[in-house]
Each structure stands twice: as structure tokens, then as C-alpha cells.
Design a protein around this nucleic acid. Sequence first.
DNA 1: GTCACCAGCTTGTCCAAACAAGTCTCGCCT
DNA 2: AGGCGAGACTTGTTTGGACAAGCTGGTGAC
Lengths: 245, 245
Amino acid sequence: MAARHEEIAEELRRAIDRGEYPVGGTLPTESDLAARYEVSRGTVRQAVAALTSEGRIGSRQGARRVVLGNRRSQSFAELRSFAQWARAMGRTATGRVIEQYRRPATAEDVERLLIPPGSDVLQVLRVRGLDGEPVLVERNAYPIWVAEAVERLPADCESVVQALYDDIGIIFAYGEHTIDAVAAGTQDAELLGIRRGGPLLRIRRTTTTHAGRPIEWSDDRYRQGSVSFAVANSIGSNPLARHVG
Amino acid sequence: MAARHEEIAEELRRAIDRGEYPVGGTLPTESDLAARYEVSRGTVRQAVAALTSEGRIGSRQGARRVVLGNRRSQSFAELRSFAQWARAMGRTATGRVIEQYRRPATAEDVERLLIPPGSDVLQVLRVRGLDGEPVLVERNAYPIWVAEAVERLPADCESVVQALYDDIGIIFAYGEHTIDAVAAGTQDAELLGIRRGGPLLRIRRTTTTHAGRPIEWSDDRYRQGSVSFAVANSIGSNPLARHVG
DNA sequence: GTCACCAGCTTGTCCAAACAAGTCTCGCCT
DNA sequence: AGGCGAGACTTGTTTGGACAAGCTGGTGAC
């Protein structure tokens, strides 16, 4: 929180949360805010742009900015790491490795991990839970250059992301998520303790380093009712895309 | 496409698409791009910020920008309107109203539509399809001030969004989406022609005007395998949030 | 009363400059 | 060969100014 525009954004978030700028009302003008915080208008614009992209305020040329809601979005750290997310929510994350083995890369692995055809990947199957109750089946594939570090991890490792950073300095910097629904297979049903064919929320995710090099891809299946995902969008910005199939 | 920074963003998108800046490679520096397009560095920064928020390129202080992929995100118009989305994909959207009636607002309606307790809402149940095949069950609730215009629509109206704009000038400006998975109920199963209890992808959405006034909220249930949703995120920006329950 | 229009306000766009902060490469030293 | 550091390079932050574009409310004509 060094940058002034981030400080201002955080102050505005708090002001919205405590009702100083009520939902449905308007924010002060950029000039007002600039004077109040003793910064230039450009810095204020950076701050309000952050709130806009979070969906907290609306923005339209010529009109005062409107407060849309006081939803608080998650940090990237909380989204990519199940353990960190659970901790932020005050829950206890559990988890254990069910299977872990190397196998030849499939066509999907080659495409998602940008690895040469014929190379191996490390396949890991984990079950994760909240407060002891199983919530999520996670199937990860790691390219060979990561595999060794993953294999060194204990079976009940809480935060894989944190461990890989501490061990070999890998930073999970970018993620792409595809969300759909699937029926529980035999293995899913068994591990989550539900009926076969029941609804699961599936997130397929590819994570890359700062340089865009894929670190892992994953197929996460959440038990019905356990979690939901939220996205805000507007005419100006739309992070969400809908695809056929 | 009036603003110069938008033009530059679009040119960069096209350059990435045609492989001029390959995935995994780097973009020219801001100064280079500023010189090439004969604009200031600030304008270039606006352009690359757009690509960054789309997840196409990565950005890190001190290092050159990295090309992450050539995914193309959807416009807001395509996301909020099923008909417009289908058209953009070259598919034919079908749809019909199954039920439509006014009813007293529930607690959920009051909270989501910011209406006074005790007022009425218009409930509409639609089935929508792609190329004749049913794909989606849509349950909408509209506040009273919108209800009259909705009731004037024909039962097979293609684009409700477009019709409401033409009729009473309502603009769907902001949306908030919550995504999870549910089991198909009896009615869902019947309307979509699937087995009861099968997996459905559910999107609950609230849409508001520019002023933040809710226009509708909707519970959309997509048949398994028919559509998926995609989101890109990074350490710098994370539009996606995960919630319990 | 109603409508059109205008003036003032507010946000959007763009520029030029300077410095801060982080990255990367290359050469030197051990 | 390997590690370390200096310096060049690149992106991030901030300022101040100017004009464009769009909204809003009020005034005046009808």
C-alpha cells in the first residue's frame, strides 16, 4: 500500500462500507476528491478506476459517479490458493493427496502447458475440505520443470502455491478460469460423499508465471452448494466471457 | 472507436491475433509504441491497460510486457442479451415465455431490486434455445416500474434488452453475476428435456441502470455442456471472487 | 404546462515532464 | 565457472494543464 492512489482507493472503499457514500448515491467529483486528498486529478482517477473495475461504483462521462454496492472482491492470492482463501474466511482448510504419478502428456496438456509433445507431466489428485468436510476434488497437471518441487511436498501440504514459492521461487502471476457444470463421476462421488451424477461446479484453470510460462493446469470440482463465484461487469468493462460448450 | 487509445488497443489486439507479437513473447516498450503511433506515453498506457484487464498481456514494473494469449473477451452487450450473444456466434436464438404473472415481492426481491417491502414484482419464466435446441431456463423478476413495458412484449420477443431500450429508453448498464451449480428441478428437467437431478450451471444476475437502479434480477440455468464462462485474472487485477455457499 | 435549448458542471482524453522502483544484462572479480 | 554489482532499461507514480464530450437543471418561448 505504498502508492497514493491505492491508499485513496482503500479510503473510498472504507467510506462506502461505512455508509458515508450510500448505495445509489453519488461520489464527490474528481476535483473535490483531489482537493480533499491533496493530489492531482490524475491520481484520483487511478483510485476511482480501481473501484470501477471492482464493480463498486459506476462511471459515465458527464455525470457524477454512482455507488453501486459494497461488495468486496478477493485478492488474487485468495483465489488461486484454496488454503489462503479458507484462512481469509476464518475457515480451516484440509486437504490430502489421493494420487500422484507421472504420465505422458495428452494433447490437452500440450496445448494448455505449452510443452513439447511426448514430454511427461505430473498428475496430482487432491481432495480438499473446509472444517473437515470435503468440498473440492482437484486434478492438477504440472510440467516437468515444476514436477520435482511438487513431489517434494508433504501429502497434506496446505498451500501448494506458498510452498512452491518458498522452495524454487515460482510466482503464480496470471490465471485463466473456465467455469461450467458437470455431473459427478464415480470417483468424484466417492471422494466427496455424494450421489453419482449429481451437480458439480467445475473450474478449469491455467496458471502462468510473470513471463507467461504455464505452471499448472487444474480441473477443480466443487460440491453443489459449497462455493459460488461472483463477477461484476459494466458497459465499460466486461471481464466475463460466455462460450458455447 | 473515437478515442486514440482505443484505436491503439484494437491495433495491438489485431497484431497479437496475427502473430506479430507471439504468445510468450514481449511487446515493444511504451516509448517505442508512443513513437510508432505518435502519441504520448500516457495514451499508450491507457491502451495496454485495456489489454491487461482483458488478460491478453501481462505487466510487471521494470520488465517488458508479456503476451499471455489471444483470447477475445465478449462485449457487455453480448453477455447481458442472450439473443445478441447468439447472433455474434452465428447461431440462431429461440425463446418463448412459459409463464408471466405479477406477485408480491419476497425478501430476496426486496434486497436485490431495492424496492419497498410489500410491492409487487413481475415474474417471467422463459425457455431459450440455440438452433432450436433448448439450452437455458430463465426466471426473471422485474420491479413494477419496468413491468408494464415487459408485459407489452410479444411472447417470442428475441431481445428483451433491445426492446426495453427502444420502448422506454432503459439502458442495462451494470451487471453482477453469481455462478454456481445446482441440480435440475422437476420443471427445469421438463423444460430442458433432461433427467431430474442432473447438473445445471446457474447464473444469478442483477442488472442496474447507469444510476444504479436495479432493472431486473434473474436466475438462469444452463444445461450441462451447453455453455461455459471464462475469466482472466492476475496479481494486479482480479475481477473474480469466490464465496462460500 | 410543456418543450427546446443553453450554460455550467463533470468526466473522458491527451500531452509533456520528472522521478521512483524494479528488471535485466554484461562485465568484473573471486 | 559462478556469483556479485553497476548501469542501462522499462514500467509505475504523480503532477499540471488544456480541451472535448456528455449530463443536468433551469430559463424562456410557445
